[in-house]
Amino acid sequence: MRNALTGVERALFWTLAFAAFAAAAAGLGARAVDRLAVQYETQRNAYAIVRVLAPEGPAGLSAAESALRGAPHVASAAVMDAQRAAQLLTQWGGGEVLPEDLPPIRLLEIELRPAGPNVDVSGDVVAALAQGGVTAEVIEAPNTTAGGGAVSRVRTAALWGAIAFALVMAIIVSLSARGLAARRRELVTVMCDLGATRGQAAGRIADEAAVLGLYAGAVGGALAGVVALVVMLLVIPAATIEALPQMILPIDLAPIIAAPLGAAVAAGAGARAAASYFHAKAARLG
């Protein structure tokens, strides 16, 4: 790579590195959003409320609590007192709800273990309660309201947003690399005069741009990775240097690996197109 990192190419190098940094950061951000959404969905699915229909009163709640201890899918169960109910209603409803304003509560909160996709969790829990002499219904977090559908929409939006942003950055890299070809125009002209085919002349310039893009992308991707680690350490209380390897999944490295490859391809393609144009201009006058 002749003079690709010196002089005027330095500005181009940092332009490409910045674009690669932005694309990699967007990818890491999208991945973080995705992980948060999955975590939220998991927590949401692991929670349900049991409403005791019969027997009424504390005896019904106590029997239900006993039955739930051995019920399938149930990790824990706790009777919901008026204080907790008021707190939840305040949280969900927006306005303040006082415990003393509530009627007698016949609810239990249960935490569920993860189950397969085709398992009727509610049916199994209701059956276990019936065996314990309790008639009850299980209220799971619905998929149709804000919590359910929003998660998949957020994940999709994060994915396509990151892809769209990466494409925009690739276009910026590609257009910037055309500048490199413009500065190598005399080389293309000389090669053309000496009998180089369009592919030979454009290939040489494209190779140089691709190597520059690869280096710049590696620097941009590495910087994005460092920034991501710093943000994780600052934002996530549980994050420590020791815990980081477990927190970073292989897929989180994808944007960092894709940055140099993407920058190389985009820079090479942009430079090739421009060099081909310059070759065509040099090859045919008139």
Binding site: E186, V190, D193, L194, G195, T197, Q200
Partner: peptide
């Protein structure tokens, strides 16, 4: 055409070089 060009030595009125 490129193949034929490689068999031609051309001295332009104002020759173009890779200046550096």
């Amino acid at each position: 055409l490129a193949e034929v060009k490689r068999k031609i030595g051309y001295v332009a009125e104002t020759p173009t070089f890779i200046e550096h």
